[in-house]
């Protein structure tokens, strides 16, 4: 599946408005294209892994540039706050409304609505939906920025100065993203919970006191939520940075890189979510 994860190498000039990579596989037939997609997936995964390892390497031993991480924290964190607050606020309202409708069908009992919502929010929705939003906002931004640097040959200029673009560009975003994803998810989760509480109060007459109930949240939920934040925070800059670095083909390239970054980062989050949720359920079955 997903040839989109693959590195775009053969740009076919035929239909540049299609993704050239997928187009290049057309004559292979169904099985052939599956195989080609599989190979590209493996190649893509390996390169992604290499970017990840090199980033970790530079986190430990790279040179420290003053202010770079702080600047990225501002870029990733502060500038996404409004966007994330609004979308997560709406998510809170929607989820509580839907859950209320769902509960109404069997038992019209809303006493545990807030507690269950909070549990789900902590364990999954705050981190996962927040990260999906961050993937669009931050992932697209990182890919567009690095992609423009690739097509204007600034990355080559960096290499000429013996600076690894991973150390110089991805590392600060990596560190900033891990910290700010956590901070943003906590804030956005809180906003989402409050918005949900108000919705429950207005739509189903649940008293706020009953809704704001944290007794179902246990250590397991916190651990799973935290793991997700860290994993997503790490995945967003790595995947989108990789998409940015593999930009090709001049002016249109930046657009395609940005598109790929959004899709691949979102997919990465959904897949990570599956594995962390599954593992979490097995470790903390309560």
């Amino acid at each position: 599946m997903t040839p989109t994860l693959a590195r775009p190498n053969a740009s076919s000039p035929h239909e540049p408005e299609l993704e050239p990579l997928e187009h290049a596989y057309e004559p292979l037939g169904f099985v052939g294209s599956l195989g080609a997609a599989g190979i590209d997936l493996i190649v893509g995964a390996r390169e992604l892994y290499s970017v990840f390892v090199r980033t970790l390497h530079y986190v430990v031993r790279g040179r420290r540039e003053k202010g770079a991480v702080i600047r990225q924290m501002y870029e990733i964190g502060n500038r996404s706050f409004l966007f994330l607050s609004i979308t997560m606020g709406f998510i809170g309202m929607i989820l509580v409304y839907q859950a209320g409708l769902q509960a109404k069908r069997i038992v019209p009992d809303f006493t545990l609505l807030g507690a269950t919502f909070l549990e789900l929010l902590v364990r999954d929705f705050a981190a996962s939906l927040g990260a999906l939003m961050l993937a669009t906002r931050v992932g697209a931004g990182i890919a567009a920025e690095i992609g423009s640097m690739v097509v204007t040959e600034q990355i080559d200029a960096l290499r000429m100065c013996a600076a690894d673009p991973i150390d110089f560009l991805i590392k600060p975003r990596f560190l900033a993203s891990i910290v700010m994803t956590l901070v943003l998810v906590v804030c956005a989760g809180a906003i989402s919970f409050v918005a949900g509480g108000l919705t429950a109060n207005i739509a189903f007459d649940v008293p706020l006191r009953t809704f704001f109930n944290h007794e179902l949240v246990d250590f397991g939920d916190m651990a799973i939520g935290l793991t997700k934040c860290l994993a997503y925070g790490a995945a967003i800059p790595i995947v989108s940075g990789y998409c940015g670095l593999s930009t090709f083909g001049g002016s249109e390239g930046v657009g395609w890189a940005t598109t790929r970054a959004v899709v691949n980062t979102s997919l990465a989050i959904i897949i990570l979510n599956f594995f962390i949720s599954g593992a979490g359920f097995l470790v903390f079955p309560g």
């Binding site: 966007f83 669009t136 906002r137 697209a140 931004g141 890919a143 567009a144 920025e145 992609g147 423009s148 097509v151 001049g250 002016s251 249109e252 390239g253 930046v254 657009g255 890189a257 940005t258 598109t259 959004v262």
Partner: peptide
């Protein structure tokens, strides 16, 4: 130009 396309994509997804 080219950076404009990147910005437009960014604005669209958000």
């Amino acid at each position: 130009g080219a950076p404009g396309v990147g910005r437009a994509v960014n604005a669209t997804v958000m």
